[in-house]
Design a protein around this nucleic acid. Structure first.
Lengths: 147, 147
DNA sequence: CAGGATCCCGCTAGATACTG
DNA sequence: CAGTATCTAGCGGGATCCTG
């Protein structure tokens, strides 16, 4: 309809998928990306961290090797790391590149789609780190209030 | 130290908590907020949705009743809704206000701390809705490639 | 209306062992 | 190095019933 306003178009676009609805596919997608390991992986890829630029295989700053990720995301099991990476690859958020060296070298890199989430994930991680003290204080207050 | 630059101060603030470390409390906090129901609740509170302004008990736009949330977040069980609301209250992200009407009326409202997460959660939800088609296409491509 | 309490199943995270 | 395969314990989370 040519008479549709921009606001109406936006409303329709948002109405196409709605994560508030249980049956909507976007609900499951939201569930997927609302995951500790997903958040950490997407926040890690593209971050500098302890990751020296220039030593990654693709030569791009937003790529990281399996072992690098494994070390950076302390405490992650191989199973969860691999599983999460696979799902992110399937969803087109990251790419997996294996170069047939000996031994094999595998790089994971953000796609443009993944990059669009990267900022939010860093934001989430930063939020947790910056507001940790506040949350801790709130919990202490709440717990004494309940007793 | 008076000789510390702003960049160094920022680095130190970030170093205080690091969600990449398994033992860091912020890792657990990140795990908490990386949750489907947390995301949906925080995105719901303060949104207009199908929520007419003026009928909420506190008269403020970012407050919502238990039954409203229960209806908006389709498919959520009472257990998960209550459990998640409690944890959000404990962390100081929302407040719970019970007015002794008959029957009792309970309102949940974002705190300032919760409000600071609200934007990110809306962003996450919007991202899932807006990129659903892309992700679906990527999955289809990936699945045929694997076969 | 807004939960509390309980039961119970499924699945998933984690540990362990093995491999190209 | 970068995984795969297998097993199991634990708990997340739904269903159900009850209450102030």
């Amino acid at each position: 309809m040519a008479t549709m306003t921009a606001a109406q178009k936006r409303a329709q676009t948002k109405a196409e998928y709605d994560a508030f609805l249980a049956a909507c596919p976007s609900r499951k997608l939201l569930d997927r990306i609302s995951d500790k390991w997903v958040t950490l992986i997407l926040a890690a890829l593209g971050s500098d961290g302890s990751h020296q630029p220039g030593i990654d295989c693709a030569g791009e700053p937003r790529s990281m090797r399996y072992s690098e990720l494994s070390r950076l995301l302390a405490g992650v099991s191989q199973k969860m790391l691999t599983q999460t990476l696979r799902s992110l690859e399937r969803d087109g958020l990251i790419t997996r590149t294996a170069t047939p060296t000996v031994p094999v070298t595998v790089c994971y890199e953000l796609t443009d789609l993944g990059l669009s989430l990267h900022q939010m994930m860093r934001g989430l991680k930063s939020w947790a780190e910056m507001n940790m003290d506040d949350v801790l204080a709130n919990r202490a207050t709440y717990d004494t209030r309940v007793l």
